[in-house]
């Protein structure tokens, strides 16, 4: 049932040219080089230290690994991570 609903949403947003991240409530992950990562529409922090940051989202857990990671900003909608980013994984 949920899968059906999602496929309808995908088709609809394609037909109406709506941004898919909004219709499906998905996170938008934007990586600038390897120094800055912004995630909008997240669902909270799971783990935070200098090497690993794990952030919950609709598509699963986003795991960021690297060195000297730091959260520059956190808002309820958006999170901004800076540092030396080595890996971004989505664990569904």
């Amino acid at each position: 049932m949920k899968k059906n609903m999602d496929s309808i949403k995908v088709n609809l947003s394609e037909a109406l040219e709506l941004p898919i991240d909004i219709t499906l409530d998905l996170p938008r992950i934007c990586l600038i080089g390897n120094i800055e990562l912004s995630i909008s529409n997240h669902k909270g922090i799971i783990e935070y230290d200098n090497q690993v940051i794990r952030i919950n989202s609709k598509s699963g857990i986003i795991k960021v690994t690297g060195n000297e990671l730091e959260i520059k900003n956190i808002l309820s909608e958006e999170i901004l991570i800076i540092g030396n980013i080595e890996q971004v994984e989505i664990l569904g």
Partner: peptide
């Protein structure tokens, strides 16, 4: 439980910036 604290702050709409993790139990 620092992550939990951050999530609670998020849900209360408290704007935080320059969050630096010093070690396992300090931020």
């Amino acid at each position: 439980q620092l992550e939990r604290l951050l999530n609670l702050a998020l849900s209360q709409d408290i704007y935080l910036w320059d969050v630096r993790r010093l070690n396992n139990y300090q931020v």
